[in-house]
């Protein structure tokens, strides 16, 4: 990320007024110099694109070789009926640019699988959506090699997940000092506090803030699949309330090595193995729940994409803006109960 020209023009300040008030001019200027790659413009990809283009990201490259289908019309708002049969990028690019003429957009209708590692080097951050387990693992190897932050998101009907690998990231959070001071050291399996500074409010000397720098250590997707377990992490009540989407999402990852839409039996088998590994009783997942999860495989549902796309875009903006701690490192969303736990796997 180049530092760029930090002076925003009066026009930019007026346009971005309501968000600059949240994250400040400096963060807005940093976003303007960022270069982001988004892989696949599906339902979640559409939401992420809308959000980060509106926010004023400097450069966004969209990589997608898909052709518009009838089903896409039910989950992607850049598309209209006449677009069916055309390349998604060709028919959406004007609509995307219209959202914010200041963003420098690049459209690449090449195939993700045919891109060599060097291609990815030019980006400051990469977001992958609708990727298979194998594709995610491969992409993650590349982002690790070049030390590029990576976001992965996908959905299964009413259920969805977000995976984040920022390699290592220091986040600075500021909050009002409480009676218990923050101490330096490890606070959870992936996080440690490395610095604490105290700041007194310039207008009100009674307000004392703690500026806490937290180092986030991330694992690769492959390591997460290996390590993920909830054994000894949940108490009985938490286990009882655990969304079935958690083991089912991982059961699906383990299958995707072979194919994108598994049969119900394959998924069930995989789920049993995962339940063991996670320390979750198989009885936790009711048949009805399992069936509809399997039934919704491959389904993109617009409002779920809005939630997931909103969460990913916000985190990407925070990473560039250096505001708020990023997601570390796995989220699973259950659209029935609105459960959205964050796990440190």
């Amino acid at each position: 990320m180049s530092s760029g020209d930090s002076n925003l023009s009066a026009d930019e300040i007026a346009l971005y007024d309501r968000q600059i008030r949240l994250w400040g001019m400096a963060a807005q200027a940093r976003m303007r110099s960022a270069k982001v790659l988004l892989i696949n413009l599906g339902s979640i990809g559409t939401e992420i694109t809308k959000n980060i283009v509106l926010s004023g990201i400097g450069n966004l490259t969209l990589l997608d070789d898909h052709t518009v289908t009838e089903e896409d019309l039910g989950s992607q708002f850049f598309l209209s009926k006449e677009n069916v049969g055309y390349k998604r990028l060709e028919v959406t690019k004007d609509r995307i640019q219209e959202l914010n003429p200041r963003v420098n957009l690049t459209y690449d209708v090449g195939k993700f699988k045919e891109k060599d590692a060097e291609y990815f080097k030019q980006f400051d951050l990469i977001i992958g959506t609708e990727l298979s387990t194998l594709e995610t693992i491969e992409l993650n190897k590349i982002t690790r090699r070049f030390n590029i932050p990576l976001y992965i998101a996908g959905s299964n009907g009413l259920f969805a997940y977000i995976f984040v690998d920022l390699v290592q990231f220091d986040a600075v959070d500021e909050k009002l000092k409480s009676s218990v001071p923050v101490e330096i050291g490890r606070i959870s399996s992936n996080k440690e506090v490395i610095e604490v500074n105290v700041r007194i409010d310039e207008d009100d000397s009674k307000k004392i803030y703690e500026k806490v720098t937290t180092r986030h250590h991330y694992k690769t997707f492959e390591d997460v699949l290996q390590a993920a377990s909830l054994k000894d992490k949940l108490n009985r009540r938490q286990l009882k309330r655990l969304s079935g989407a958690v083991p089912l999402t991982f059961a699906k990852f383990n299958l995707q090595n072979n194919q994108a839409c598994p049969t119900s039996e394959e998924l069930r088998k995989s789920m049993q193995a995962i339940s063991n590994k996670f320390g979750v009783p198989v009885e936790n997942i009711k048949d009805e729940y399992f069936e509809q999860f399997a039934n919704q495989s491959g389904i993109e549902f617009a409002p779920v994409s809005a939630v997931i796309g909103g969460a990913v875009a916000q985190d990407v903006i925070n990473v560039f803006g250096k505001r708020q701690s990023p997601i570390c490192n796995f989220i699973i969303f259950d659209g029935i109960t609105l459960d959205m736990p964050i796990y440190e796997f």
Partner: peptide
């Protein structure tokens, strides 16, 4: 911001909240 009672507002929070409202 103070004189005009302006509340900061961003696309992402609105998208998440509207999505949840629709789902529920």
């Amino acid at each position: 911001q103070i004189a005009g009672n302006i509340i900061p507002a961003i696309a992402t929070t609105n998208a998440i909240i509207a999505g949840l409202s629709s789902i529920v």
